[in-house]
């Protein structure tokens, strides 16, 4: 039985939303499409699972409109594991987000992997008790999402490819832009905010603190233990792995290896050991071979 807290206690605050993301740091969040995969992820030491109907590699292969998962499927995963469960809503689809919140999901990913529902606006995330994570390719995009209420940011990378190059580019871009703001004079920040199309107050906060006001994970194309460890060394707070695990030859072993490599991201001996005999990685697609209009990272505004 759970305790119901009321009276002078407050739920859904900025601090408990951002704090939840703090607790996920150093961990691996894995895409799963059914309860069996969710159990494999949990047993491997995943910090959370992302419930979705098709992993990005299949969304890419099958095409069509991609939407929120069936509530039965999300509920099945919530019932199967005791770690936090996340689920994806389409960009701008606030009713999908309301439905996911009502299911008791712990975090919503307003995700470019699904087909956008609104090509102008993202969801007003302040209107929810459940926290949101959003993708970003650069600092301006990250701060626009935070301004809309996102409590966690992840690099977009290029989902469903197994090609880590875009995740690298997005992490490097965000970090470089943070460093640039930190080196600026106070009176230069007005124009900087205009240039990156981000709210001035958030630009000032980033310039002062030298980091985002929320946790920054990496996502999009991470397929191997070395990929995960590289992103951690580049300053990611944690790792999302989408298609990389359950599209590989031996998901349980690869899931375990990526978790260990993320924990010991500075220890090449450990990364080497867990990388041995993992079998086939997901086949993958070079991002350069995907026409720009078909790149998921281009979604978001």
């Amino acid at each position: 039985m759970t305790s119901n807290v009321s009276n002078n206690a407050v739920t859904g605050t900025d601090r408990v939303k951002r704090g939840m993301a703090d607790m996920l740091k150093g961990g691996v969040i894995m895409d799963v499409v059914n309860a069996e995969q969710a159990k494999i992820a949990e047993d491997a030491g995943a910090i959370a699972v992302m419930a979705l109907e098709r992993v990005p590699a299949d969304i890419r292969a099958e095409g069509g409109v991609s939407r929120m998962s069936d509530p039965d499927m999300i509920q099945g995963i919530i019932d199967a594991v005791s770690i936090p469960v996340m689920a994806k809503a389409r960009i701008g689809h606030f009713v999908e987000a309301q439905v996911i919140q009502s299911l008791g999901v712990d975090y919503i990913d307003e995700s470019e992997v699904l087909t956008p529902a609104d090509y102008t606006h993202h969801i007003d995330k302040w209107a929810f008790t459940v926290p949101f994570v959003c993708g970003a390719t650069n600092l301006g995009e990250a701060l626009r999402r935070i301004n809309e209420g996102a409590a966690m940011i992840r690099s977009k990378g290029e989902a469903g490819t197994g090609d880590v190059s875009n995740a690298v580019m997005h992490m490097r871009t965000i970090r470089a832009e943070i460093n640039r703001l930190s080196s600026m004079a106070e009176d230069e920040l007005y124009v900087a905010a205009k240039e990156i199309q981000a709210p001035y107050d958030l630009v000032v906060e980033v310039a002062r603190n030298g980091k985002l006001p929320v946790v920054l994970f990496t996502a999009g194309g991470i397929a191997t233990p070395a990929d995960a460890a590289m992103m951690m060394q580049m300053g990611a707070d944690g790792v999302f792995v989408g298609s990389g695990i359950f599209k590989s030859g031996n998901p349980a072993q690869r899931a375990n290896a990526i978790v260990q490599a993320t924990m010991h991201y500075e220890d090449a001996d450990v990364i080497a050991n867990v990388s041995r005999g993992l079998g086939e990685a997901m086949v993958g697609i070079n991002v350069a071979d995907i026409p720009v209009p078909h790149r998921l990272a281009e979604r978001g505004w």
Binding site: S3, A9, T11, V16, G19, G104, D106, Y107, V130
Partner: peptide, 12 residues
Amino acid sequence: NAFGRQVDSFEI
């Protein structure tokens, strides 16, 4: 998780 899921997280 005695108080419930994330939507039940609180400050006091």
